[in-house]
């Protein structure tokens, strides 16, 4: 099914309808429980991540003390879902994809978490809301990347983006589903709505990581000119949410842009990059950030 409209706007809608109406196939050798549970687990954890995202003042499901820590924990659950899917499909390609996904996720979780430490140290909080509020200075431009710690902030920002690409199995790290070798990796056997769940999870995770990057590095909903609004203005939440979404969507676009720009890496290259470059770099950044913040905090 292929449709168009202005710049193809209706294609997404059509895809959704297509996926909803397709036949739900359960391969004969598959494990019925795991096969069915995997998409739910993946989708559930992806959606749970949205709970702590601070879209705008007052627009947040839950401001947890542990915000980003919780988000990381939930994100790690998708790995289990991927393994479940790969195993449950009873298909060699799926299993290989799942194993690659597990190895990759386990490896990149370390630089991902470590790259979050500089902003956490800077703001002194796990709470995304609190971090966003601390970036409201300079007329809405007091973002972490513009702070005095920018020389740590900018590398850690790119590190976070790179690691989250791998964590979300996006190109050039889409080894788990690399269609040229494994057909479609761990979700080869899925069709219809269950496939849509995997598909949506990927984009939801992309958005969630972009939102985290926005909230920690790019000032969240803070935008230049927000001080012009009256105190407690009813416009602020809406304009803030718009700013937040624009920044996050820009980062999502960067991720998609990267997908079309860079070729896929080999699995050993993925591992080498993760363990031998990103992890030491993240550790170095952590030390640098700790030293900088400690120096700044000295009386």
């Amino acid at each position: 099914m292929r449709t168009g409209g202005w710049h193809g706007w209706s294609q997404t809608l059509a895809d959704a309808i297509k996926l909803l109406t397709k036949e739900d196939i359960l391969p004969s050798g598959a494990d019925p429980v795991l096969f069915r549970l995997a998409p739910a687990l993946v989708m559930g954890s992806a959606l749970a991540m949205f709970a702590v995202l601070p879209f705008a003042p007052g627009i947040q499901f839950a401001d947890l003390d542990l915000g980003i820590y919780f988000l990381l924990a939930i994100a790690s659950l998708t790995t289990i879902g991927v393994i479940m899917a790969g195993w449950g499909s009873n298909n060699k390609w799926s299993l290989y994809g799942a194993m690659r996904g597990a190895a990759q996720a386990a490896s990149y979780e370390i630089p991902l978490a470590l790259s979050l430490i500089p902003p956490i140290l800077h703001f002194g909080t796990f709470s995304l809301l609190n971090a966003t509020e601390q970036q409201s200075g300079w007329g809405g431009m007091g973002w972490y990347v513009f702070s005095d710690a920018f020389w740590v902030a900018i590398p850690s920002f790119f590190l976070f983006l790179t690691a989250s690409l791998a964590e979300n199995r996006r190109a050039p790290f889409d080894l788990p589903e690399s269609e040229s070798e494994l057909v479609a990796g761990f979700h080869t056997e899925y069709s219809g709505l269950r496939f849509a769940f995997f598909f949506l999870e990927e984009y939801a995770a992309m958005f969630a990581t972009s939102a985290v990057a926005t909230a920690y590095w790019l000032g969240g909903w803070n935008f230049p000119g927000m001080t012009l609004l009256a105190e407690g203005s009813a416009w602020l939440p809406w304009l803030g949410a718009l700013a937040f979404l624009l920044k996050a969507m820009f980062l999502v676009c960067v991720m998609i842009w990267v997908r079309w720009t860079l070729p896929r890496l080999r699995i050993d290259q993925v591992m080498t990059l993760g363990w031998k470059y990103l992890t030491p770099l993240a550790l170095g950044l952590m030390v640098a950030a700790a030293g900088w913040e400690a120096w700044r905090a000295m009386p």
Binding site: A73, I74, A75, S76, L77, T79, I80, A106, E109
Partner: peptide, 8 residues
Amino acid sequence: QVLLYAGG
């Protein structure tokens, strides 16, 4: 617990 046991 979630991060280390479930995720790790």
